Simulated assay, not measured.
Amino acid sequence: MIRYALHCEHDHEFEGWFGASGDFDDQQARGLIDCPACGSKAVRKAIMAPAVAGTKTRSQDNSPAQNQAVMMEAMSRIRRHVEDNFDDVGDAFATEARAIHEGRSEDRGIYGQATSQEVRDLVEDGVPIAPLPPEPRKKTELN
């Protein structure tokens, strides 16, 4: 495996692992590489020193702000995927999730709203559910 330090056009830094040295170029040409922070496909390899074993260890943790930005982008992508590919059943979520679980309704991805009590009942009955990440704040709402 080969690890490359990567940068997008917005100077987000991340890394990618590839099976062989030509895999990065092949995947980039097919549009398979994008920035995890912003989704940009304009990604390039950064200059990187070869990994050499030594006695010192150093942390390569991102700053808390970078970690938060990556997390918020990932949650936003999950929400968009659900909204684009699942059926919005509104406030009938609990009823429809239970019907799907029991085989009385078509097996498909759904999302919607449920009360706290409905959520507790579904979990207690073994119906597989998960909360949808919150909608990202609009830029006009940010400082």
Rank of each mutant, 00 (worst) to 15 (best):
S40V: 10
S40Q: 10
K41G: 01
K41I: 08
V43R: 00
V43W: 01
V43Q: 01
R44S: 10
R44Q: 13
K45P: 03
K45R: 10
K45Y: 02
A46M: 13
A46I: 12
A46Y: 01
I47L: 13
I47Q: 11
I47T: 08
A49G: 08
A51I: 08
V52R: 08
V52W: 02
V52Y: 07
A53Q: 04
G54A: 07
T55V: 08
T55K: 02
T55D: 05
K56E: 14
K56V: 05
K56R: 03
T57D: 04
R58D: 12
S59L: 10
Q60H: 05
D61L: 08
D61V: 06
S63N: 00
A65W: 12
A65N: 09
A65L: 12
Q66P: 01
N67S: 11
N67E: 14
N67M: 14
Q68W: 08
Q68T: 13
Q68G: 00
A69S: 04
A69Q: 14
V70D: 03
V70Y: 15
M71L: 14
M72Q: 12
M72L: 03
M72H: 01
E73K: 14
S76E: 03
S76L: 01
I78G: 05
I78H: 06
I78N: 04
R79D: 14
R80A: 14
H81A: 05
H81I: 00
V82C: 04
V82Y: 02
V82T: 11
E83I: 10
E83R: 15
E83K: 14
D84F: 06
N85Q: 09
F86N: 07
F86T: 03
F86S: 15
D87L: 03
D87Y: 05
D87K: 04
D88V: 10
V89E: 00
V89W: 11
V89P: 07
V89R: 10
D91K: 14
D91N: 13
A92F: 07
A92I: 00
A92D: 13
F93N: 06
F93D: 04
F93R: 05
A94D: 12
T95K: 05
E96D: 05
E96M: 06
